[in-house]
Amino acid sequence: MMNEEPRLSARELMERLDPSLSRRTRVRAVAALVAGLAGTVFIAALWGSEPGPLPGRTQVAFGLFTAFCLAWTCYGGWLLKHRVPLFATERVIAAWVAVAASTTTTALVATIAAQRGTGLALPLVVGLVFVAAALTLAVRAHAHRGALLRRMRELTGEKE
Rank of each mutant, 00 (worst) to 15 (best):
R91G: 09
G56P: 06
L149Q: 14
M1W: 13
V60Q: 11
V125I: 15
E160N: 10
M1Y: 08
V27I: 15
L8P: 05
Q115D: 13
L122R: 14
L46M: 00
T25S: 12
G48I: 01
V84T: 05
P6K: 15
L79M: 03
R145E: 15
L8Q: 07
A100I: 15
L13T: 02
S20R: 15
S102G: 09
Q115H: 13
L46A: 03
V125P: 02
A110N: 05
A107R: 07
R91E: 03
L128A: 09
M152V: 05
L64H: 06
S9M: 07
F87Q: 08
E90R: 11
I93P: 02
D18I: 04
L37K: 02
F87S: 00
V97H: 00
Q59W: 14
V92R: 00
A67Q: 00
T106R: 12
R11D: 05
L122F: 12
E5P: 09
V139L: 13
A100Y: 10
F65P: 04
F87V: 06
I43S: 07
G117V: 02
N3V: 08
P55T: 04
T118K: 09
V131E: 01
A100N: 11
R26C: 10
A107H: 03
V92S: 03
P123W: 01
Q59Y: 12
L70F: 05
A147I: 05
A121E: 08
S22A: 14
E160G: 10
P53T: 12
T73M: 09
G56W: 13
L8V: 00
K159G: 14
R145G: 06
Y75A: 07
E4Q: 14
R91L: 03
E158N: 10
G63A: 03
A29N: 11
A35Y: 14
E15W: 01
L135C: 13
L17T: 02
N3P: 02
A38D: 08
R16F: 08
A95I: 08
A88C: 00
S22H: 13
